[in-house]
């Protein structure tokens, strides 16, 4: 499911001016920005979509939406390169450019009536958060909900306060596991696919939404196949180099798919052959 982003008459390459209205440090290298248009209304978003955020003179980067309020987009950004570095240093009041939202969404409508399994690895929780919020806001429409979260070490857990709130919700199974921890950590240790047998879901009637490092998503999808979850109901959010976000620059090609417009959220049965090819 996708919808074309609103394009101004000035063309698909020209951003709209936005302003940072709040900035919060989440982790050592990760910041969440709330950004609002300098003028005009906030475009509608679907969970799983992304925006192109532009820092004048530095460049533009594709950043997943990790939420939205009435007035602002929420982006959680990890400092991994020149553009994301500049974005993570923007103070409240700073200006930036935005194009979007772009891309396909988590299938929150199509999965109604099913058990939904959400598997997040590291920062992969950020693009899943709008879907989690949607599922909880419409809890009655879904079967059993499970949220399985993997992180590197306990201090690397993203959104710990919101996870605590989700945990308090008796209608949602939440499990958090660490790749590494010492005996001071009392929760799960082990990679996130190991949590799958502990979650309660009916494989034949389950949709899985997975986001995290590609290797983690591939391993999780394989484990789900082993549990007889149908491949067409396993959804991954992929990442590739993106310059234009509208299928015109060629950079994000992944086999025949353009991740910017055919993704980022893609069905596993459609991409499994491409995932098996190295350097594609």
């Amino acid at each position: 499911m996708s919808m074309p982003a609103p394009i101004t008459e000035r063309g698909a390459f020209v951003p709209t001016p936005y302003r940072v209205i709040a900035a919060r440090r989440e982790l050592g290298d990760t910041v969440t920005l709330n950004i609002a248009p300098q003028a005009g209304a906030l475009p509608a978003i679907l969970p799983g979509q992304f925006n192109m955020l532009y820092v004048p003179g530095v460049g533009e980067a594709a950043i997943s939406l990790s939420g939205a309020t009435e007035a602002a987009f929420i982006h959680t950004i990890r400092d991994v390169g020149a553009i994301s570095h500049a974005l993570t240093r923007l103070p409240p009041g700073a200006s930036l450019g935005l194009r979007g939202p772009f891309g396909t969404a988590w299938p929150v409508a199509e999965t109604q009536g099913r058990d939904v399994l959400i598997v997040a690895g590291g920062l992969g929780l950020a693009p899943l958060r709008p879907a989690i919020r949607h599922l909880l806001a419409h809890r009655e429409r879904y079967g059993k909900l499970s949220l399985l979260i993997g992180a590197r070490t306990p201090p690397d857990i993203l959104y710990p306060h919101e996870i605590a709130q989700w945990r308090a919700n008796l209608d949602l199974y939440v499990a958090v596991t660490m790749d590494r921890a010492d005996a001071m950590w009392h929760g799960h240790v082990g990679v996130v696919p190991l949590l799958l047998p502990r979650a309660d879901f009916d494989p034949a009637n389950t949709a899985a939404l997975i986001c995290g490092p590609e290797v983690m998503m591939r391993a999780t999808a394989q484990a789900l196949l082993g549990m007889a979850v149908p491949a067409e109901r396993i959804h991954l959010s992929l990442e590739r180099n993106m310059k234009c976000a509208i299928g015109l620059c060629g950079h994000c090609q992944f086999g025949a798919a353009f991740i910017c417009k055919d993704g980022p959220v893609m069905r596993y049965d459609r991409i499994a052959p491409a995932l098996a090819v190295r350097e594609l």
């Binding site: 000035r10 390459f13 020209v14 709209t16 001016p17 302003r19 003028a39 200006s95």
Partner: peptide
């Protein structure tokens, strides 16, 4: 050239 960015009193303006 895709666009030019101008600093304005209001913030930014992006000019095609």
């Amino acid at each position: 050239v895709l666009f030019t960015t101008r600093q304005t009193a209001d913030g930014l303006d992006f000019l095609p």
